[in-house]
Simulated scan of single mutants.
Amino acid sequence: MKPRVEVVAIDCLMVRLFDEIAETNMPWMLAACARLREGFGAHLIDLVPSYTTLMVHYDLLALSPARARELIGQALIELKPDTQAGGQCHVLPVWYDSSVGPELSLLAQRSGLAVEEVIRRHSGREYQVFALGFAPGFAFMGLVEEALAAPRLNTPRKRVAAGSVGIAERQTAAYPVESPGGWNLIGRTPAKLFDRGRDGYSLMQPGDRVRFEAIGHAEFVNLGGDDTPLEVLA
């Protein structure tokens, strides 16, 4: 690992720890986050972790850009992965069905698997939250196995229902609010992923782990899920 510091804005620096996305990156990212928060203290305005980078937004009235670089350098000295900080583990119930996940059958055809096997494989492993972005509470998770990987849609949908679960390349995610989107949709969760009344707003944070649990239609509705078919929303 050879960290690089890049300028993002007059009061923001980007710390690039890795060049490739990997599940093994996160323990290093969490360790760096802890060190940077300690080093910058009250002069840190925001710290945004992503797949391979950390954006450091600092108080320019309190620190010069040169001093900010010094603090970053000091924080990364003898950095070791944080193997203890694994974040929370969330279990998200999902109703996998073509009416709310129109690409479910297409993914099955693409992979040569039965629909039931696609569901079993997607819900059969634990995913890591790499980053939040695109929409409030939208957690980019991975990595899905190669057999389920699929490119984004050529033409994004204008409306994707809140709770929609999808796959793009080797990432998976659930839409926290209704929005446009181009991911391959395979189901829907009734879980409330973004809540203004929740501390931190988002249910998930980088470093958390997520497991999807297949449920039936009746349970989905009982849990408050909206079963309006996607084609009705379009």
Rank of each mutant, 00 (worst) to 15 (best):
R4N: 12
L36G: 02
S50P: 00
L143W: 01
G187Q: 00
Q109D: 15
A174Q: 04
Q74L: 13
S105L: 10
D59V: 10
A131N: 06
Q88H: 11
G197Q: 14
P81I: 07
Q171N: 03
S50N: 01
L71S: 04
Y201V: 09
L203C: 01
L107M: 12
D227I: 08
M29A: 02
G133H: 06
E70V: 10
V144R: 04
G187C: 02
L143Y: 03
T189S: 11
A139E: 03
S98A: 15
A9K: 12
V91I: 15
V94N: 01
L76G: 09
I167A: 04
R4H: 15
F194R: 02
H90Q: 08
K192L: 10
L13G: 10
L230N: 08
A191H: 03
V165Y: 01
G200R: 02
V177K: 05
A139C: 09
V129G: 02
R211N: 13
G133N: 01
Q205M: 08
R120G: 13
Q109V: 07
L104Q: 03
P156I: 01
K80H: 05
N25L: 06
E219W: 12
I77W: 10
G182T: 01
D208W: 03
R211C: 13
V5M: 13
G73I: 08
V94K: 02
E146W: 00
V91Y: 15
Q88N: 07
Q74K: 14
S50D: 00
F212M: 10
A174C: 12
P65L: 05
T24P: 07
H90A: 06
A22R: 07
L60M: 14
E6A: 13
L92M: 09
L71K: 08
K2N: 14
Y175H: 03
R120L: 13
R196G: 09
L113K: 03
Q88P: 00
A218K: 15
D227Q: 14
N222D: 15
D195P: 05
P81M: 06
F130R: 01
A22P: 10
D97S: 10
R110G: 09
S98C: 07
S202V: 05
L106V: 11
